[in-house]
Amino acid sequence: PEAADLRALARHLYEAYLKYFPLTKAKARAILSGKTGDNAPFVIHDMKSLMEGEQFINCRQIPILEHQQQTSALTLGHGGITAAHPGSEYGIMGMTSIGDQGPTDAVELRFFQSCQSRSAEAVREVTEFAKSIPGFINLDLNDQVTLLKYGVIEVLIIMMSPLMNKDGTLISYGQIFMTREFLKSLRKPFCQMMEPKFEFSVKFNTLELDDSDMALFLAVIILSGDRPGLLNVKPIEQLQETVLHSLELQLKLSHPDSLQLFAKLLQKMTDLRQIVTDHVHLIQLLKKTEVDMCLHPLLQEIMKDLY
């Protein structure tokens, strides 16, 4: 009976994951391996293709994503799909029209702002996923906030991994592939933002987790009882322990030949904290050096006094 409960928990979290996250690993890997036929992503590899990218996406059909059929159409207002709406005020990933861009210096900043819009939307998706973890909404509300504040960037980095390979990353819900070299060619410090995530993701992807493994791992990350400022640690640790058992069982069943996968996965949580610390420091540096930059209020809330 205990194992049956753990399997039921795994199924529940997998369903929540499918409901709230629009681009699954299975779909992303199909796109990256060219198995989607005519729907190959548009490749952005230089400034010219960056400009063409917006034009390209304007001509494409808006894919109907499963979870978005259930959510408000307004959700699309801040995501990459918005770019497909003719006459939209947003472009790629919510970017203001690239066609009438100003000085080249502003390109990076505008792209960064569009990434912020998508990130804020992703934080909302992760919040909904967290709320679906059994017991999460019964925790002290202040502790729920703390768990999200400290966990959400880690979750987003894990979710970015399936979208990446050694050569680049899918953006805009899988409709665009942006090359790693192009991201590296942006001016400093923008060129430094994605490289650590590529390095992490390439290694993380060798673990070959599937979407149902990912769902459990994300829940484990969210339920970390050692986040600073938690008021009532015990119930959080109890919830995490149950999810950890479910994850361990899941990995044994779905990856019987992968030795020590559970241990390897838990070790990734240490690497993640360092990546988030470095990321936040980079954002703080940007705030000082880029006078025109404004940080999204939700991201500001999350990053303030984080590390």
Binding site: L74, E121, R124, T127, L141, V145, L148, K149, P297, E301
Partner: peptide, 20 residues
């Protein structure tokens, strides 16, 4: 609570996507 107003709202379902 004021420091994390939007997160509180998201958790309590009082923020619509458009507010983001």
């Amino acid at each position: 609570k004021e420091k994390h107003k939007i997160l509180h709202q998201l958790l309590q379902n009082s923020t619509s996507p458009v507010d983001l």
